[in-house]
């Protein structure tokens, strides 16, 4: 049948896209274990020297520490702020609701370089350029949309009648939140946490403008290293980041489905 043949073409096309999407992530893995001094494919020999190089360099470790600290704090703040905002946005109808939702989502679609420069400029006028707190505020701004979205997706699946039921049964608002809403929102909050953490860990452009000597996040450190070196060290650190991403994807998928979080 002709339509079946057409579906074959479609399947083949999708398979090609899958290869295209996976290729640059997969090729990093063997390259990280190459004994060659240049980043090449196919890799020559087997060696863990680039991982050793990575660990011996203090700047990578301190950049990782800063990245994790910023990601952790930005995630915590985004979740709390996002929980409040999501509740207001998805439980009430008020004047300007959709405008506010659009405002909160703006960092997702604003050209990154323009946002980065703008944040650098406002931080500089506030004396927070190349400052930990300036960096943290920027990361909260960038991760907040993800927190609002994931928690919002979770919230929309909890019927308002469940809240009403709890209230009529004698639950005060704080009890309603603690005994009913929080347990029901837990998967959404967890998925939002992982998402925010990863987005913050991976953030590049804004961090490039807000960091500096003594205050460098991991992606920026990799960028700086690659400016002057072309050995497989960047592949080996990429492997570590890919592993973290894989764990994150698997966890979100189990918690509430990546698809639901994103669409």
């Amino acid at each position: 049948m002709r339509s079946r043949a057409r579906l074959r073409y479609l399947d083949a096309f999708v398979a090609a896209i899958v290869v295209f999407l996976l290729a640059p992530i997969v090729v990093v893995l063997p390259s990280a274990f190459s004994s060659d001094v240049a980043l090449s494919f196919p890799p020559q020999g087997f060696s863990t020297r680039w991982f050793e190089n990575l660990l011996s360099r203090g700047e990578f470790l301190s950049a990782a520490r800063l990245s994790i600290t910023v990601a952790f704090l930005a995630t915590a703040i985004s979740l709390i702020v996002g929980l409040f905002a999501a509740y207001a946005l998805f439980r009430f109808d008020f004047w300007g609701r959709s405008a506010l939702e659009a405002l909160f989502m703006t960092p997702l679609v604003f050209p990154a370089i323009a946002l980065a420069l703008s944040l650098a400029m406002v931080m500089s006028t506030a004396g927070l350029l190349r400052d930990f707190w300036g960096l943290l505020i920027a990361h909260v701004l960038i991760t907040m949309p993800y927190a609002i979205r994931t928690i919002g997706a979770s919230l929309r699946e909890i019927s308002v009648a469940i809240e009403d039921a709890a209230l009529t049964l004698g639950a005060r608002p704080a009890q309603l939140f603690w005994y009913v809403m929080l347990p029901l929102l837990r998967p959404g909050i967890a998925a939002g946490a992982i998402f925010s953490f990863i987005i913050s860990m991976d953030e590049f452009t804004v961090s490039l403008f807000l960091t500096g000597p003594g205050l460098t996040t991991l992606p920026i450190e990799i960028f700086n290293y690659a400016e002057f070196n072309s050995d497989p060290t960047i592949a080996s650190i990429s492997v570590i980041l890919i592993l973290i991403s894989c764990i994150a994807v698997a966890t979100i998928e189990r918690l509430m489905g990546l698809r639901r979080v994103l669409s």
Binding site: S159, A161, I162, D164, A165, A166, V180, L184
Partner: peptide, 8 residues
């Protein structure tokens, strides 16, 4: 409630 609104 019509939907029962049991706590799932």
């Amino acid at each position: 409630f019509q939907s029962y609104a049991l706590f799932p």
